[in-house]
């Protein structure tokens, strides 16, 4: 089932026929759905006439597209060079421990947080850096990052 059918229809009609619009189209759909389910992609394919394989190919190629439901807050852990040499791994390990996430898990059981690793948030001078939703936090330590998490619920 697709929840936001009406909004999706509007987005599709806004882009239809415009060259090079597949990626922004999918980005906008993801913005309202929070992820791209296989049903959504199938629907998009039927509506737009773009092959499902192509849509799926694009969705899996770009890290920005999510194929699984996402947590309420997105925690981006910077694993760029500057953050790496300033201890990003310890930050990540500490976050995962605090959120009770095993090696391959990225979303907490209560659906509050999804963590992802990104390469450089452009604030290297404040390394190590994480971004929670649209807020950037810098100069972190393994224990300060735990305190920051507590601000979110």
């Amino acid at each position: 089932m697709i929840k936001n059918k009406k909004q999706i229809d509007e987005i599709i009609s806004k882009f239809i026929g415009k060259k090079g619009s597949l990626i922004p189209l999918m980005q906008e759909i993801q913005n309202i759905e929070r992820y791209l389910s296989i049903d959504t992609m199938r629907y998009l394919s039927e509506k737009s006439g773009v092959k499902l394989a192509e849509i799926y190919g694009v969705a899996t190629f770009y890290t920005m597209f999510k194929l699984k439901p996402q947590g309420k807050h997105i925690v981006r852990i910077c694993k760029g060079t500057a953050c790496h040499v300033s201890g990003a791994n310890s930050i990540a390990r500490s976050l995962k421990q605090e959120l009770n996430l095993k090696d391959n898990e990225d979303t907490t059981k209560d659906g509050l947080f999804t963590i992802m690793e990104v390469a450089c948030l452009g604030c290297c001078s404040l390394a190590p850096v994480i971004m929670i939703d649209d807020n950037t936090y810098g100069k972190l330590t393994p224990d300060s990052v735990v305190d920051i998490l507590k601000k979110y619920n």
Binding site: G20, I23, Y62
Partner: peptide, 21 residues
Amino acid sequence: AGAFVCGEETALMASIEGQRG
């Protein structure tokens, strides 16, 4: 949409066209 290789010029243009980069 988050792919380092899209900084390469021919991949970048493929990405603008809406394809995999």
